[in-house]
Computed example of a mutant assay.
Amino acid sequence: MKTKTNRKLTKSNDRVFAGVLGGIAEYLQWNATVLRVLFVLLTLASHGAGILVYLLLMTIMPSKPGNAGFFEQMRQAGQTGSEQPTARRSRGRKEIHNVHEEDEPHHQD
């Protein structure tokens, strides 16, 4: 007897590009690498039609709750890239301790 589960088709964190194939693999409970290889083979056999299907699914499929999509991650990276957290701010010159300095080795002729 099968149990009823509330699975939703969403983009995955197991992503190479946008998480579409990883999300489909999670939904179908398949290995994501096998699905990606099949996708590439079918895309080559269909003269590139798989690319259009992928782009369509990339725009339609929702991200998992709490996970930002590709474009949201890019927007967040652009906003936080200009701001430095207070813990990472430079506090002047760095000091180096316990350094042993040697001259270049002398060559004996």
Rank of each mutant, 00 (worst) to 15 (best):
S82I: 09
D103F: 08
V20Y: 02
L21N: 05
R15M: 04
Y27E: 01
H106R: 11
A45W: 15
I51E: 09
K64F: 05
E104A: 13
H107M: 09
N98F: 05
G69R: 06
R75D: 04
N6E: 05
K64H: 05
R75Y: 06
V99P: 00
G78S: 14
A25K: 00
V40G: 04
R89M: 05
M1N: 12
A25R: 02
S63D: 14
I24G: 01
L55P: 00
R91A: 12
S90G: 03
W30H: 04
P85H: 15
E104P: 14
H97F: 12
T10F: 04
V20A: 03
M1E: 06
L56D: 06
V20K: 00
K11N: 02
T43Q: 08
A45Q: 15
I24W: 00
H107Y: 09
P105G: 11
F70Y: 10
D14V: 02
V53L: 12
A49Q: 12
T10Q: 03
V99M: 09
R89P: 01
A49F: 11
G81L: 11
T10A: 08
S90E: 07
V20I: 03
G19V: 01
F71A: 11
H100C: 14
G81C: 10
T59Q: 13
L35N: 06
F39Y: 15
M61R: 02
K11Q: 03
E72C: 03
V20H: 03
F17H: 10
E102K: 09
I96K: 08
E26K: 01
F71S: 06
G78N: 14
T33L: 08
K11I: 00
L57R: 08
F39D: 05
Q76A: 08
H47N: 14
T86W: 07
Q76K: 11
M61Q: 04
L44V: 15
F70M: 09
D109M: 07
M1T: 03
F70P: 11
G19K: 01
A68R: 15
T80E: 15
A32D: 11
Q29W: 02
R91K: 12
P65A: 10
A32Q: 06
N98T: 12
L56P: 06
F39K: 07
T59K: 12
S46V: 15
V40P: 03
T33F: 10
A18P: 00
H106N: 10
K2W: 04
S82N: 13
H47Q: 11
V34N: 05
F39H: 06
K64D: 07
A68D: 14
M58T: 04
A77E: 11
R93Q: 10
T33P: 00
V99I: 13
M61H: 04
R7F: 01
P65N: 09
N98P: 05
D103I: 09
V99T: 14
T10I: 14
S63T: 10
Q84F: 08
M61T: 02
M1V: 10
H47E: 12
V34I: 14
